[in-house]
Design a protein around this nucleic acid. Structure first.
Lengths: 270, 270
DNA sequence: GTCCTTGAAG
DNA sequence: CTTCAAGGAC
């Protein structure tokens, strides 16, 4: 088990942003990079560009047009087979073994605008997906597996994970029905929410800022949608580096032609 | 009447290619630049970018989505009012006075695939437009006006204006019904086809290469679709500079993200 | 191939 | 605001 740097980034089209990723990788030097919303088919993944960044191992689960996840790694990846946690098989989840860790990469549905599953099928899909994730990790908890879950969960769970708790309680991503479902998953696997283990609960932390805001930085109406969670079996490795081992690269949101998400990074101990 | 450099370029989206135009203008330094297929509404024309290129005078006739023509000039333009030569008012024609010349900028319809007006309304539209142009300049011939006509005529009139005369006789842009209609317009105003006045008739001359060709340069299946015509009253000014005063910038077709048309330039005498 | 529009999705 | 997908045009 060597130490390594794990990153998660909703890239919002990996083909369009391979050069942006290269820029960032040259600064952040992640060993294992989990991407969401790659928005391409497997064969369209720009593997060559990633090879030039130093990645040699890939696990891509894409589809045409929407969604899609991928892992690029400098360490070998062991394919564990797909569990198909997404009820609709929309290329929203993948898992691999890497350096003794069972790594799950998620792109949980955004869920549409209306936070009512009775009238919004997208929201119902999101909640159904969350239920399935909970059942899956509940069923596996007895094994005490070395799980790390990362990705764009599309939920900002805590008060200071959004710019205004009060104003967002009825906005999809921060409604009680979502944050409670996410908390049930967390408890099902006894996962540590790494960011909140390392950063005080009353400190604002965001990883996403809407494209729609005129000045994302000035308005700073962000949300923490991107997460890294560690199961008890890897809790120590995940938290070993302390506060300095964790970083959300907020500045990247201000780069040329950015994703609306910032990359989230954790140095994991050996 | 000062001498000036006149250019015509089908730019295939002026918003997308304003940087390309700036690159080219910095090399070619045209005084009056006639554009076709600007593909934007008047208020969307990137005037600021053109001001930075040194143009101070504009006459834009655009519409949403398709077609559209524009003139950017370093010399004052006098608006002559629109004649609406296009039967459908599709922003395919404009005219101005500049340095003693009545300048007409045309984007004649491509005409679709099938060269039969009975079954192809696009082709019928093209022929109808040509008829109207002929009637217009016939009616004005007696004035002996100082006319210069430029633009994308979407017709390659002569044998060596296409890569294969024989193979293109049934291809829209080089069919006899089109080349004859264009010749009637030419004769109606006794226009000089500047390129062919200066370049021998048996020399291949192209201004357009399809995007569809794998290697436009190697295949070199071009067509001369872009023209500069001078009426008798300005014939001497137009031809004063001789062969060196005329240039089609073929290389520009090979630049990054090019238009499928190359810019055509004529130095006009004072 | 490349562009524009529309509509869905975020 | 930004992405992708159709469909139409060239």
């Amino acid at each position: 088990m060597t130490a390594f740097t794990l990153a998660s980034w909703n890239i919002n089209s990996v083909r369009l942003r391979a050069p942006l990723v290269a820029d960032w990788v040259s600064q952040a030097d992640p060993d294992v990079l989990c991407l969401q919303e790659i928005k391409c088919q497997n064969e369209q993944f720009p593997e060559e560009a990633f090879r030039e960044m130093g990645f040699r191992h890939f696990h891509v689960r894409g589809q045409k047009g929407m969604h899609g996840v991928a892992i690029a790694s400098k360490f070998p990846l062991e394919d564990l087979g797909d569990e198909d946690l997404c009820p609709r098989a929309e290329a929203r989840h993948q898992r691999v073994m890497v350096e003794g860790i069972e790594l799950h990469n998620f792109y949980i549905p955004a869920g549409g605008d209306e936070p009512d599953p009775a009238i919004n099928p997208r929201f119902a899909h999101k909640l159904g997906f969350l239920d399935r994730i909970e059942a899956y990790f509940k069923a596996r908890a007895a094994e005490n597996p070395p799980l790390v879950l990362v990705g764009d969960f599309n939920i900002a769970p805590y008060e200071h994970d959004v710019w205004s708790h009060k104003q967002l309680l009825k906005v999809v991503s921060h409604t009680p029905v979502e944050t409670e479902a996410l908390e049930r998953i967390r408890q099902a696997g006894d996962f540590a929410d790494v960011a909140r283990e390392l950063i005080p609960m009353d400190e604002k932390v965001y990883s996403w800022w809407s494209y729609r805001a005129r000045d994302w930085k000035k308005a700073n109406r962000g949300r923490r949608l991107d997460h890294i969670w560690a199961a008890p079996a890897v809790r120590e490795r995940a938290l070993a580096g302390g506060r300095d081992a964790f970083r959300i690269w907020e500045d990247v949101r201000g780069w040329e032609k950015p994703s609306d998400h910032a990359p989230v990074v954790l140095r994991i101990g050996g």
